[in-house]
Structures are given as structure tokens and as C-alpha cells.
Design a protein around this nucleic acid. Structure first.
Length: 838
RNA sequence: GGUCGCGUAGCUCAGCUGGUUAGAGCGCUGGUCUCACAUACCAGAGGUCCGGGGUUCGAGUCCCUGCGCGACCACCA
């Protein structure tokens, strides 16, 4: 609408682990595992499954009216995007940024795959801390007690480590101790990694089953016996002959834990156990407790990649909103660790690496399939593993625009893109990595605004999830209330980065905001179209300014204010220069504020006041009818434009029916509104408006029946106000059901009184109804309140510091206020004298 | 353990760089089926801006502190 070509590429990723898990569960019901089916047949099943179900997200996206370019719907597993994945892998490898590492990684014994640091989620767990005594090997009665949460890994121990500074154990360093129950002799070593303050200050070292122990073991050139297999059972897997006692052989790690605790107890080696709280990592897909596992995996070196991504956010090339996430982003990048990109899954991009079975040279990394060794022409086999799904997602802004084809028209036209909108929980998984990929492969940031939304939660503030059953399917909401109601509710209810609470058990109430607004908008449209009728409607520009009424000027003025507010709330789409200015960094993207400005205009100003004011004019034949019609249509047209991005369906449907709409035009393509020049008489209408409110207030207070006409004297503060009130008396009278007399002064007794903000007064004559005592009380209360406020205002203005230090416009405003309030005080005081004297 | 955020009306939250009498939606109370709309209209009640200090002419807004929540990160076995 801002006449700026916009592209939103829809699409999905292949969700490696998640999808594979679901399909494995399905075939498990048939009593099969993926290994029974074999790789090819299994992949067929997954493809089948994805084809059937994969469209749901896109359907939902479409149903809620997302204005995507559906012809470009992308999928990370498509040939085009797969090509980009391979290209990226090969380039990174050629750049020396991909390497194969032998180390302890996070392993899910259920999914049978490794996971990245981000995919292994720490959960607070209440466990036990076991204190186990390791006796000296020399037969003396000396011993060293270690504290461990995982006694089942004792068979894999290769040393006991203490801090080199620790006096308690200094004489033991260099000696050997025996593994309890097992009897193997291991050394006591000193390593600074050990925290002397924790537990006993002595730490058992199990290099194959703990990442830190692995590092310690490497420093001390210790062996790495593996005693837990890939499904998490204890057995002699590698370099561990004679280490696993027969009682533990084949036991699951948790069973082995209780079993070995018993054995240690019987052997007198278990000193004590303590309740202990610590973080245990779980698989982010199946919640299984992660088992650290020693294996060969492909890693991406992250430090060099992180550098420009860090710089981009620091120097304002990319802004992250809300701003508080910047610190989180920076912190993660500064402490970034290498990215394990291999997954021992089948559903994903196979790693483009081949090994020669004959000559056994270095692994061959290739863009194309390889059938024989380029060196010896021997047989080759491809790496069994696939890539982390995020290894394809991190290329999204590039790959969906045609990369690696540098001549791609899309890439030229739309890269770098503008805004990336997503949930904060994938800031690291996705956003940070996309930025790194953008810089590494294309030398530029992939977007310059990162907008992190809040999360939709239920009434207990729980995230919506399948397992809790507290989710809301957008399709249900669309079916019940329409897409616009859903969109309005969520957009209006979500301040920047704030969560929005919706009750899955009470959709009526949860979506009332949006439903009511859309209904209201529709009804305004109905009235308008009905009353404007079929005849030609003149464009507002062709109406002479002198023909506009005060109400016309007022509503046009309010429209301009709404447009200005909306523009300010939305802010600029992209940086004015290469980088965001200090101001721009935090400006804009306030969707809820933009929506509120538009809502207030349409509902509280257009519908509640202008439409009511214009009713008589549009139903009365004559030249003024055309003026009112022109203004109504113009204002509504502009309002629809303003609202279209939020409620596209209902605004488009209404706009199509506007008499001024040209054939074959769409609101979606209409120009975004721009404010016009200011109108002098617009503020005067406020006096009339408050007069109506004041009369209504009095009517309500005295329980005057709605149909009954009353007499009201409207006393202007000055001649000009009286003039305005006189000219608008018909309108005021109609809206307030009163016969209006505008005057410079009014009766003080036997009437109900109300003051207008500008100092004018409304006196409603209620023959025989007025309760003088009530009026006295009211006026007294009002006066007291005013006196208090006036006192503090006077004090402020008498304060020299305020007058000299505050901004001049603030002081000026306070002075004006003082004048107005003083007048009101006098009026009230005189009123009080008359009323309260009886 | 580190970092960050939050605590404003019964509920969910706005309130941006300190400056009119602190706002919205939903809910609540009273009155209206007024010829666009009862998913509406009119009027109204409801707030010690978590507590305590401080800076300032001026604090919901800035600083310190206490209490209560939450998020993220982290190799303390």
C-alpha cells in the first residue's frame, strides 16, 4: 500500500527429528523400526506422511489471510534448496570452517542421534549426589571420596582429579586408587578444572561419558573406555574389557545407577548420598534424558562466522526488537561454541561426504554424487549421517531467492530483505545463524529488522502445546469468528514482545475484542452505504472548503491525527541510510498502538460522533447532503485503508462497495493514506461534543427517561464559545435530546449544572426535578478538587527552578491551564454560593 | 551461578527520551431493543502505579535496596 514492492515467501522446513519421530511412532504401531524397513523404504514412508500432513501450517497461514506469494512456496527439502545446502557445506569445508571432530556430544538414546547444544535442553532435576570412596591402591588405609550424580559411569572412570591448589589431596596426587567394586587401578591427577569447593573437591574422570571429563582426559592423555551403548545400556562397548561387572551388564543406565549404588553400599564404598538439584539435559523433541556420547561428528567452526553477525547488530545494520533481546544475542555470539551439524537420522540432507573403501584417503567432499574414488577409482560410500535441519533453514533468505545462482533476479531484487518476524526461542537456532550465513555467503545482512513476537499462552500462562491440549487451532477461530477477528485480537493484544493470553475453553471471550470490532466496522459500513445511496459521490477535493461544517472539519482532523499516529507507531520500513539511526533503532513496529489509533478513530470518533452528527444531513435532500456524503465516503475510505493490513477481508469487502471505487481496483493495492492540512474550526467542535456529554451526564444522573426532551442553557465562556454553541445548537440538541439555548449567562438555581473543559457551562433545566442539595454537593466537591489541583499548579509556576529549567512549551502549557482553571474556579465558587445558600 | 525482564483498574496489558487531572480491551454497576449495530448505545464505579530509600523544581517513568514472579544462558561433578 505504501507503493513499495513487498515479498513474503511462505514455506516450511522438513523438521528432521520431529518428523522422523512421528513416522517412527506410526511404524512402531505396525511393530516395525526404521531399521526393519531400511533407509529407502523408510524415507518413502516419511515423504508420504509429509505430503499428507505437511500442508497444514500453510493452510493455517493462508486461512488467516497472510499475504504471501504462494507461487514461491518454499521447502527446505526441495531440489532448489537442497542444492543450496550442498553448496553451503562444500564452501564452508573449502574455507576450512567445517571439520570432523571426535568428542563427547549430546546423544538421544531414543532418537539415536546426536543433538546440538541448543537442542539438548536443560531441565532442573532433583536427583542424588553419591559420595563414593576410592581406596588407595597401595593397600594403605588412605582413600579419596568423590561426589557424583552418575555412579553408573564408575566403570568408565580413568582417574580421580583434584584441584592442584587443594592442600587436602596434595599428597595423593601421583598415587593410584582402585575403582570400588571393579578394582581397576586409576591415577589421582591434578587439574585446575576441578572446583575444590564443590562436593569433596575430588572428581571422578569418565572421558567417554562427560564432555568436561573428556577435555580433562585429553589434557592428561588418558584412555577413553566406553561403557554405555547407543541405547543407553551399560556394557563393554569399546576399550573397556573387564570394566563392567556382570551384574550391570546390559542394564539400562538408570537401572544400573540404583544397582551399582546397592553394590557400592554392600562393598562399604558408599559414604553417603545427598539430595541434589541440578540441570539434566533432555532431548528437545522426545524429552529423553541426554546421554553424553563419544563419537565422530561434523562441526562448523563458529567464531569467524559470528564476528560479522555480532558487528551488524552492534553497529545498527540490523536492529533487534524488542531491544532487550540484543543483549541475549550478543552474549550468545560472544560465547559461541562450534555447531554440531551431523544427525544420525535418515530424514534430512545426507552429508555430501564420501569415503573411499579402497585407498582410504581423506574424505571426499563434493557438490555432486560420487560413484568412485577420484584417486584410485575404488568403491566409495557416502557418510551415513544427515545434516541438522537448521543447516538448511539458516540459508532461508538466500536459498528461497535463488542462491547460489548469483544471477537470480529474485536475489537481486529482494536481497537483503527487510524484516524477519519470529519467536524469541529460535533466536539462536535460526535468526543468528541466518545472519551469519548472510554475511558469509553473500557478504551482507539478510534483513535489517528482527522482530521477536510474544507467545500465545493459556490462562495459566502456559505455552500452548499438543501434550497439554491447551492449544487453539486458528482454523477453528477463523470458522467461528473469521480471520479478521483472530488477527485483530492478537495484534491488538500483543504489545511489542509481550505474550498474549487466550482461553482455549472460552473462545467467545478470548476473541471478543476482534469479533466485536469487526462487527462494528461492518455495521458502520452498512449504515454508510445505505445512507449515502446510489447517486454520484463527489470526491472530497472538489467540495469547496467553505461548505464543510464544523463536524466535517473535526472528523477530517481526527482522521489526520489517526494517520499520523499510525505512521508513527509503524515507523520506517527500512533504515534511512545503510544503518539504523540511534532513534530508528527503537522506533516503530508498535502494531498494537497502530491498531488502537485506527480503532479509536473508526469507533469512538467516526461511529460514535460523526456518523451520529451526519445522520440528519444525509437523509435530508439539499446541497449539504452531498457535502456530508462526500466527507463520509472519503473518511471511511481512508479508514479502511488504514485498517486493511489488520483486517484485510472485511475492509476489502466494504471497500469494494464504495461508490467512489473505480472498477477493478482493490483496496489491497490502494494507496496508504496521507494526512492533509490542518483545519481551523475542527477544535471548536470539541465544545459542542462536550456539551452533549454534559447534558447526557445530567440526564443519567437525574434518571430522565431517554425519550424525554429537556431544556438546556449552554453558557459559553466567551463570546466566541457562545457563537459556536449557538451555531451548533441544533446538533447538540439532537444528540442530547434537549432544546438548546446558547447564552452568556444562565440561571443558577433550579437547574443541574456541568462544566465543560474549556470553562463553558451547561445548565439543564429540569422543571421540578432538580435537587438543589445534590447540586450543591456536586459543585462543592468539584470546587474542592479544583482548588487542590490549582494549588499545586500555582506552586509549580511560582517555583523559579521549574520556570527556568523546564521546557518552554511545558511552562507555557501550564500557564494557559492556570488561566482556564482560575476562571472555572470563579464560576464554581459563585455557583456554590448560590446553590448552597439554598 | 551469570545475564536480562516483569510487578500499573477485578483480569490481560499500553504508558517510548521524567512534565496536563495515569489509559485501552475484557469484566462490573445503572439505564436503554433510539429506524447501522444489544457482538450495540448512554452514563458510571474501580488505581497508596509491589514495599522502602534516593536524585530532581517535578518520578508510574531515572538510581539504590527489599519482596514476589518469569525468561535466557552456564562444564560445578
Amino acid at each position: 500500500m505504501a507503493q513499495d514492492e513487498a515479498l513474503w515467501v511462505p514455506g516450511t522446513d522438513h523438521a528432521g527429528i520431529a518428523t522422523q519421530n512421528v513416522v517412527e511412532r506410526i511404524i512402531a504401531k505396525e511393530g516395525k523400526s526404521r531399521f526393519d524397513l531400511g533407509r529407502a523404504a523408510f524415507l518413502e514412508r516419511v515423504t508420504e506422511f509429509v505430503t499428507e500432513t505437511g500442508g497444514t501450517i500453510l493452510e493455517q497461514l493462508r486461512a488467516i489471510g497472510s499475504s504471501c506469494d504462494w507461487s514461491r512456496t518454499a521447502y527446505t527439502f526441495s531440489p532448489q534448496l537442497s542444492r543450496a545446502v550442498r553448496e553451503a557445506f562444500v564452501r564452508l569445508h573449502d574455507d576450512g570452517l567445517i571439520y570432523r571432530g571426535h568428542r563427547v556430544i549430546h546423544w538421544c538414546p531414543r532418537c539415536l542421534t546426536s543433538l546440538s547444544d541448543e537442542e539438548a535442553e536443560p531441565h532442573e532435576t532433583h536427583g542424588k549426589l553419591y559420595y563414593v570412596r576410592y581406596a588407595a591402591a597401595d593397600g594403605s588405609d588412605r582413600s579419596i571420596t568423590v561426589a557424583t550424580t552418575r555412579p553408573e559411569t564408575i566403570p568408565g572412570d580413568v582417574a580421580v582429579a583434584v584441584n592442584p591448589e587443594d592442600e587436602r589431596y596434595r599428597d595423593l596426587v601421583g598415587t593410584t586408587v582402585r575403582l570400588p567394586v571393579i578394582g581397576i587401578e586409576i591415577p589421582v591427577i591434578a587439574d585446575a578444572y576441578v572446583d575444590p569447593a564443590f562436593g569433596t573437591g575430588a572428581l571422578k574422570i569418565t572421558p567417554a561419558h562427560d564432555p568436561n571429563d573428556f577435555e580433562v582426559g585429553r589434557r592428561h592423555r588418558l584412555p577413553t573406555p566406553v561403557i554405555i551403548d547407543q541405547v543407553g545400556a551399560v556394557r563393554e562397548v569399546l576399550d573397556s574389557k573387564g570394566r563392567v561387572p556382570p551384574e550391570l551388564e546390559g542394564l539400562d543406565r538408570f537401572d544400573a545407577r540404583t544397582r551399582i549404588a546397592d553394590m557400592l553400599g554392600q562393598a562399604g564404598s558408599l559414604v553417603k548420598t545427598e539430595v541434589h538439584q541440578n540441570n539434566v539435559r533432555h532431548c528437545y523433541r522426545c524429552e529423553t534424558v541426554i546421554e553424553p556420547r563419544l563419537s565422530d561428528q561434523w562441526f562448523v567452526k563458529m567464531k569467524d562466522l559470528a564476528e560479522p553477525a555480532l558487528e551488524a547488530v552492534r553497529d545498527g545494520t540490523i536492529r533487534i526488537m524488542p531491544e532487550r533481546w540484543v543483549a541475549v544475542y550478543v552474549n550468545w555470539l560472544e560465547n559461541i561454541r562450534d555447531w554440531n551439524i551431523s544427525r544420525q537420522l535418515w530424514w534430512g540432507h545426507r552429508i555430501p561426504v564420501w569415503y573411499c573403501d579402497a585407498c582410504g584417503r581423506k574424505p571426499i567432499v563434493s557438490r555432486d554424487e560420487i560413484s568412485e574414488c577420484p584417486h584410485c577409482h575404488g568403491a566409495v560410500h557416502q557418510d551415513e549421517d544427515v545434516l541438522d535441519t537448521w543447516f538448511s533453514s539458516w540459508l532461508w533468505p538466500l536459498s528461497t531467492l535463488g542462491w547460489p545462482d548469483e544471477s537470480s533476479a529474485d536475489l537481486k531484487a529482494f536481497y537483503p530483505t527487510d524484516a524477519l518476524v519470529t519467536a524469541p526461542e529460535i533466536l539462536f537456532f535460526w535468526v543468528a545463524r541466518m545472519i551469519m550465513a548472510g554475511y558469509h555467503f553473500e557478504g551482507r545482512a539478510p534483513f535489517h529488522t528482527v522482530y521477536l513476537t510474544g507467545t500465545v499462552r493459556d490462562m495459566q500462562h502456559r505455552k500452548m502445546s499438543k501434550s497439554l491440549g491447551n492449544g487453539i487451532d486458528p482454523l477453528d477461530v477463523v470458522a467461528r469468528y473469521g480471520a479478521d477477528a483472530l488477527r485483530y485480537t492478537v495484534i491488538a493484544g500483543m504489545g511489542m514482545g509481550a505474550d498474549v493470553m487466550l482461553d482455549p475453553d472460552n473462545l467467545d471471550q478470548s476473541f471478543a475484542t476482534g469479533r466485536n470490532f469487526v462487527t462494528k466496522l461492518w455495521n458502520i459500513g452498512r449504515f454508510l452505504l445505505l445512507n449515502v445511496g446510489d447517486g454520484d459521490v463527489q470526491p472530497l477535493a472538489s467540495i469547496a472548503k467553505s461548505r464543510l461544517t464544523r463536524a466535517d472539519e473535526w472528523i477530517l482532523d481526527r482522521l489526520d491525527a489517526a494517520i499520523r499516529e499510525a505512521d508513527a507507531s509503524l515507523g520506517p520500513a527500512r533504515p534511512g541510510d545503510e544503518r539504523w539511526s540511534e532513534r530508528e533503532l527503537t522506533q516503530g513496529m508498535r502494531l498494537s498502538e497502530y491498531v488502537e489509533s485506527a480503532r479509536r478513530f473508526v469507533w469512538n470518533e467516526l461511529a460514535d460522533w460523526y456518523v451520529e452528527a451526519a445522520k440528519l444531513r444525509v437523509s435530508t435532500e439539499g446541497p449539504d447532503r452531498d457535502v456530508a456524503r462526500a466527507v463520509l465516503v472519503h473518511v471511511f475510505d481512508q479508514a479502511l485503508r488504514l485498517l486493511h493490513p489488520v483486517v484485510p477481508f472485511v475492509t476489502e469487502a466494504l471497500w469494494q462497495r464504495l461508490p467512489t471505487r473505480a472498477a477493478n481496483e482493490y483496496l489491497a493495492r490502494a494507496a496508504w493514506p496521507a494526512p492533509g492540512e490542518s483545519r481551523a474550526r475542527a477544535p471548536q467542535f470539541e465544545i459542542a461534543r462536550s456539551a452533549v456529554s454534559a447534558i447526557r451526564q445530567i440526564r443519567a444522573e437525574y434518571n430522565v427517561p431517554p425519550g424525554k426532551m429537556v431544556d438546556a442553557v449552554v453558557v459559553g465562556r466567551d463570546a466566541r464559545a457562545v457563537g459556536v454553541l449557538g451555531e451548533e445548537s441544533d446538533l447538540i440538541g439532537r444528540l442530547a435530546r434537549a432544546t438548546i439555548t446558547a447564552s452568556t449567562q444562565g440561571p443558577t438555581g433550579a437547574a443541574a449544572h456541568a462544566l465543560l473543559p474549556d470553562g463553558s457551562e451547561v445548565v439543564v433545566l429540569l422543571a421540578g426535578l432538580v435537587d438543589i442539595e445534590k447540586e450543591c454537593t456536586r459543585v462543592s466537591a468539584e470546587l474542592a478538587q479544583l482548588e487542590k489541583q490549582l494549588a499545586s499548579l500555582e506552586q509549580r509556576l511560582a517555583n523559579e527552578s521549574f520556570v527556568s529549567r523546564a521546557k518552554p512549551e511545558v511552562v507555557e502549557a501550564e500557564r494557559t491551564k492556570l488561566g482556564e482553571w482560575s476562571t472555572r474556579r470563579e464560576q464554581l465558587a459563585s455557583k456554590k454560593r448560590t446553590l448552597c445558600a439554598g
